[in-house]
């Protein structure tokens, strides 16, 4: 099945091609396409040419197969199946293979540095690509989870901009919480 081509223009005026089915992975693009005011090229002033190919790569993988991608997004486990042994085992095996393949793909796809992570989060947010936003935000959360404030600051180049008085106040509040909270 051949698909209509769509052209996307990055913030720095570079044009990229994407299949319409793939573009539909983005709510924003989908609305523009369905709105019918598609006039050759869609300008994306918030997405640079550095990151746009990466976004397109994600859409290519996830666009077009709306029915089954949903299942995969849920981890492929249907609650009902557990108690209903009368399902198609062959179908289930194929599904499992698909899920495994996708997980592997995601792992490779997500192998990038922090700067790319910010750009991808912003692009996914702007273009309303839920799956990509979920993936990137989870990566960001995993970089914070279980870390001390100092480690988080260092990891993300966050400077504490509290005045000395505020700092004191923060510590007081912390102490209050510390009655119940023992940060390790």
């Amino acid at each position: 099945m051949s698909s209509t081509k769509i052209f996307l223009k990055s913030s720095d005026d570079k044009t990229f091609e994407i299949d319409e089915t793939a573009a539909r992975a983005s709510e924003t693009l989908k609305n523009i396409i369905d709105g019918g005011c598609l006039d050759g090229v869609i300008p994306l002033p918030n997405v640079s040419s550095n990151i746009l190919p990466k976004v397109i790569e994600y859409c290519k993988k996830h666009g077009g197969d709306n029915g089954s991608s949903k299942k995969i997004a849920n981890g492929g486990v249907d609650k009902d199946k557990e108690i209903l042994p009368d399902y198609d085992e062959e179908e289930d095996k194929r599904e499992k293979v698909r899920v495994d393949e996708l997980k592997k793909w995601e792992e490779e796809y997500m192998d990038f540095d922090q700067q790319v992570l910010y750009d991808l989060m912003l692009a996914a947010n702007y273009l309303h690509i839920k799956g990509l936003l979920d993936l990137t935000v989870e990566k960001a959360a995993s970089m914070i989870r279980g870390r001390t404030p100092d480690q988080i600051r260092e990891n993300f180049n966050i400077n504490s901009d509290f005045t000395p008085e505020e700092e004191e106040e923060m510590i007081l509040i912390e102490d209050e919480w510390d009655d119940e909270w023992a940060f390790d």
Binding site: P149, I152, S160, F162, M170, E174, F183
Partner: peptide, 9 residues
């Protein structure tokens, strides 16, 4: 909760 003491933001 810990993130509250990172910075003003």
């Amino acid at each position: 909760v810990t993130t509250g003491i990172l910075s003003r933001r």
